[in-house]
């Protein structure tokens, strides 16, 4: 199991807690935490991926990476490695 994920499972009971890169296309979720280097963290925050922000995985690139998010009414593309810096909660209705 991913160490970041283990930490979150100790803190919360959420079965729905995972890292963003593990989500399937079409799934929706809410950003819970950001564990990233300062440079990546600053950019993710500026682009609107702050805690409690809802988003949807809109698409995956033809070669499997990067992914495309629908967030705050616009489209954002990030690599899976960057998505793995985001701990998310899967929305129930999916």
């Amino acid at each position: 199991m991913h160490p970041k994920l283990m930490l979150s499972q100790l803190l919360k009971d959420g079965e729905n807690i995972m890292l963003m890169n593990e989500m399937k296309v079409g799934a929706s979720g809410i950003v819970k935490a950001i564990i990233a280097s300062p440079m990546i963290k600053k950019r993710l925050l500026a682009m609107g991926l702050t805690p409690n922000t809802p988003f949807r995985i809109a698409k995956v690139a033809p070669l499997g990476d990067p992914i495309e998010l629908s967030i705050r009414g616009y489209r954002l593309s990030i690599r899976k490695s960057e998505a793995s810096c985001l701990e998310v909660e899967l929305s129930e209705n999916d």
Binding site: M39, R43, Y74, R75, L76, E82
Partner: peptide, 11 residues
């Protein structure tokens, strides 16, 4: 150096 691919896909 780190590089990013956090990029807006404009309409």
């Amino acid at each position: 150096e780190e590089t990013l691919f956090i990029m807006e896909l404009p309409p």
